[in-house]
């Protein structure tokens, strides 16, 4: 346990000193600020784009528009940032050879995977919390009331998908060599999940549902119960991805 804590601590120090914390917190804070602001200003922006002969009628913005903007940002740019920030977490160490000394000291290989997962999830969680609290607070300030149904569960779905993606990046890094080793399998999996989500039958089980039904949850057009299955499947897949990453990393030539 002491070794696990020591290596996780090293991971967090690395994230701080290589500016990952600064990048994630700043960008996520910006997302948090922008979402309610854009929602509020959108009618003014649109009315400024008057085209002769066409009358654009935009309804008065509501708090739900802020959350729509928030989930749109996170399920597109947020996931991209996750891939870019965490894509090299294991691949870079394998490429540079920095793990050689540490493994030669007796650090168990599974600890490398588990520590990297823990540190990445911590940063993802803190970043998401910053974004959520900023959006909530700013939406409250701009719209007077920011409370919506199923808000926590909707954020939890997004968070869980992020954790699944991090586990996938680690599995991909353990499987493929090279700087982009961590991204190959992750991107392929994301594309496959997106493609198969077209079928409503598959959508019920698809982890990608956790990033596509967030707003529907707030609007109560989707039942919380409907998402229990993809939540369970995503949680299981995250554990399986981590387990496979550990197995593959144990067999990896150094």
């Amino acid at each position: 346990m002491r070794v696990y804590i020591a290596f996780t601590k090293k991971e967090i120090v690395e994230q701080i000193r290589t500016y990952k914390w600064l990048i994630v917190i700043s960008v996520f804070f910006l997302f948090g600020m922008m979402s309610p602001l854009l929602a509020k200003l959108m009618p003014d922006i649109m009315s400024g784009m008057k085209v002769e002969g066409i009358k654009i009628e935009i309804p008065e913005p509501v708090v739900m528009d802020a959350y729509a903007q928030f989930f749109k940002n996170f399920t597109q740019m947020g996931i991209l940032i996750l891939l870019l920030v965490f894509g090299g977490t294991l691949s870079n160490e394998l490429m540079k050879g920095t793990l050689i000394n540490i493994l030669a000291k007796g650090l168990p290989r599974p600890t490398v995977i588990l520590s990297k997962f823990t540190a990445s999830v911590i940063l993802w969680t803190v970043g998401l919390l910053v974004a959520v609290t900023t959006t909530y607070g700013y939406a409250f300030y701009l719209f007077g009331d920011a409370s919506v149904p199923n808000f926590v569960f909707s954020i939890f779905c997004l968070w869980l998908f992020g954790c699944f993606l991090i586990a996938l990046i680690l599995l991909s890094s353990a499987l493929a060599n090279g700087t982009f080793g961590g991204l190959i399998l992750s991107v392929i999996t994301l594309v496959v999940l997106l493609l198969i989500s077209i079928s409503p039958k598959v959508a019920k089980f698809n982890p990608i549902t956790l990033t596509s039904k967030n707003l529907d949850l707030l609007k109560e057009s989707v039942n919380v119960n409907d998402l229990y299955l993809p939540v369970a499947i995503t949680a299981v897949l995250t554990i399986v991805a981590l387990y496979l990453a550990i197995l593959l990393f144990r067999r990896k030539k150094m």
Binding site: A104, L107, R109, R250, R251
Partner: peptide
């Protein structure tokens, strides 16, 4: 192979 237990006796 892949296990690091014996490395506790080694400096590399």
């Amino acid at each position: 192979y892949g296990l690091t237990k014996t490395n506790r006796n080694i400096g590399y």
